[in-house]
Design a protein around this nucleic acid. Structure first.
Length: 406
DNA sequence: TCTGGGGTCCTAGGACCC
DNA sequence: TCTGGGGTCCTAGGACCC
């Protein structure tokens, strides 16, 4: 989808159309640009740019908060259109998908005709622009759809992959970021064509496993990496995490621990939604100087219970925090889903079961009354300013008389 | 420039086991 | 006694993607 977040925001507020729009937050906030309209991009604003920098480049831009629910809603509409068009659909992210069009020629005609048909249907059903790349591999299809933007269709005829890729900057290859680009530049490789001419053995020796994949990519092949599964496969998540950057760095232990507790609640809730239990719990800690550590612990008994997650996380925090050092970011990460449910001591088991039922009840309350309807007491002990700022309409406020706590 | 949040995959070292 | 080889699991960090 083209400028997806911006385009969705324009549907909710048509006055944004054609103007420089920045999605991601207020210009004085800590944060980065999620998406910029094409008008804003003319000023050099692009995603991942700090909001404060975007403001300096384009002070007249309209800054809007992101609305993940809206993007999910439209992502679903996009999926419906695609799925009606061809059954083999794989959403690669909220705004990107692969379609396997094998065997649809009788239905839709040759590739370009099929693509234009889909392009029109997408616009009619969602009012959103998209770009479509057609090729024999996912890699080339993705790169050609990037080249087709905005609002275009591009077909790379079979056999022309190498010729199509050769003049492009290596950075256009998915997986080649800042660092790999720098490393490639250092040995005189700037274009995908330069890469394709290189000896595979040299690439492997220089860049390891990744070098082999790179050699294939330069020739338009999917093999060796993220692209070698069948279209349409969907395994569940491998990890679930939440993190929070404070408006201002803090040394306030009450605020820190209530934030950790809240993050554990968010992770726990999502674990239960997915019916998963995690064995490995990881704390992420970023200080004022941006130095970042992660500390993990694997427990014998997998859990999906907020209080159990929080016990682990608090241990990890207390053992690893350079006491007094101002904290910029905290994160809670769960992974390592357990196969079976090992039994623990009877007392531990009873306690675990009671909490399980409590969590289920809490989740039902949140479904009915909203996310802030119920919370661990530990999540509410800290300073309220952070939370009120994030969710002005959410928590009742400092009086707390209406707060429900476990 | 003053740097989000939610993910995946890869590397590398060490513990531990047979 | 002066030191193997293979495998798995755990942990930490980093590149990269949207």
């Amino acid at each position: 989808m083209d400028a997806f977040f911006v385009s969705v925001e324009e549907l909710y507020d048509p006055s944004l159309k054609g103007k420089p729009v920045v999605v991601g937050g207020r210009p004085n906030e800590r944060g980065v640009v999620s998406a910029a309209s094409y008008a804003a991009r003319k000023f050099g604003v692009h995603s991942a740019l700090p909001l404060r920098t975007a403001y300096k480049l384009c002070p007249q831009a309209i800054f809007v908060d992101g609305h993940p629910e809206r993007y999910r809603e439209y992502s679903h509409k996009v999926y419906e259109v695609l799925h009606a068009f061809s059954p083999l659909v794989e959403m690669a992210s909220v705004d990107e998908a692969y379609l396997d069009m094998t065997g649809t020629e009788r239905l839709y005609g040759p590739p370009l005709r099929a693509a234009h048909l889909l392009h029109d249907r997408m616009k009619a059903a969602t009012q959103l622009n998209c770009s479509i790349g057609i090729a024999q591999s996912r890699l080339v299809a993705k790169i050609s759809s990037d080249q087709a933007k905005p609002n275009g269709v591009l077909w790379v005829i079979p056999g022309q992959e190498t010729a199509f890729l050769a003049p492009l900057d290596v950075r256009k290859v998915p997986g080649v970021g800042k660092v790999t680009e720098r490393n490639l530049h250092a040995i005189g490789i700037r274009k995908v064509g330069d890469l394709a001419h290189l000896d595979e053995a040299f690439l492997e020796q220089r860049f390891g496993k990744w070098g082999m994949a790179l050699a294939g990519k330069s020739r338009g092949l999917d093999a060796g990496g993220w692209f070698d599964t069948e279209i349409g496969e969907d395994e569940g998540p491998k990890s679930i995490s939440h993190e929070h950057t404070f408006m201002e760095d803090t040394t306030d232990l009450a605020l820190i621990e209530s934030t950790l507790s809240r993050l554990c609640e968010m992770v726990g809730r999502r674990l239960r939604e997915h019916k998963l239990s995690a064995r490995t719990i990881q704390l992420k800690l970023r200080y004022s100087d941006f130095s970042t550590i992660t500390r993990a612990h694997s427990v014998p008994r997998a859990t999906q219970i907020d209080t159990e997650l929080f016990e682990e996380i608090r241990e990890l925090f207390r053992a690893n925090w350079k006491a007094g050092a101002a904290v910029r970011l905290l994160g809670v990460h769960a992974s390592g889903w357990s196969e079976g449910d090992e039994q623990l001591s009877l007392i531990g088991e009873e306690r675990h079961e009671r909490w399980k039922q409590t969590m289920a009840a809490a989740d039902r309350m949140r479904d009915r009354f909203g996310e802030s309807a119920i919370s661990l007491a530990a999540s509410m002990r800290g300073n309220f300013r952070e939370r009120t700022h994030e969710n002005p309409a959410g928590l009742p406020g400092k009086k707390g008389s209406k707060d429900s706590s476990v």
